[in-house]
């Protein structure tokens, strides 16, 4: 787990962001100089509906503290309904995680549009804060997975 100079736990978040909305929103957050925690690693997807759970699970089992899937607001999907299919898939994943005693709050789905740079920064700050409360992902220390 990476730690900063003050030894405070800095959560590592893997962000799967859709090209048309959230990725562009993240870009806007940068160009408008919004401040947000540096622990997010962004992976660029064409659509939140393109996410397969295998990638989310890979991130979590390899020790990411949180996974954020970002897509267009309902009704705004560039491919009409990819985000709504992603919502079902992630609801299913989180339900399965809950049944098996895995922390479902390590997966969030958020709608952030291309114009919502400020919301993107706020969301990362919010998730970072929540993950600091939860502590490091216990799977990070597990070899037997």
């Amino acid at each position: 787990m990476s730690e900063n100079s003050s030894n405070e736990f800095e959560p590592r978040i893997v962000g799967f962001l859709c090209h048309w909305c959230t990725y562009t929103g993240a870009d806007l957050a940068g160009t408008t100089r919004q401040q947000y925690p540096a622990g997010i690693r962004i992976i660029h997807l064409m659509c939140s509906g393109a996410i397969d759970v295998v990638y989310i699970l890979k991130a979590l089992l390899d020790g990411a503290d949180g996974v954020l899937v970002g897509g267009c607001h309902p009704g705004d999907c560039h491919y009409q309904t990819g985000n709504l299919k992603a919502r079902r898939r992630i609801a299913l994943l989180r339900s399965i995680m809950e049944t098996l005693g895995l922390d479902q709050e390590r997966v969030w789905l958020r709608w952030i549009s291309a114009s919502e740079g400020r919301l993107f920064a706020e969301t990362i700050r919010e998730y970072d804060g929540a993950l600091k409360q939860q502590g490091a992902n216990p799977l990070a220390g597990e070899w037997d997975l």
């Binding site: 699970l57 089992l61 299913l92 997975l145």
Partner: peptide, 25 residues
């Protein structure tokens, strides 16, 4: 190197968790 050790073959738990997600419904 990252974890100190990993189970081989790798991704055993992930295989079952993924299969659950893909077809349990």
């Amino acid at each position: 190197g990252e974890k100190g050790a990993i189970r081989m073959p790798a991704n055993t738990v992930m295989f079952h968790l993924t299969r659950l997600n893909h077809m349990v419904i």
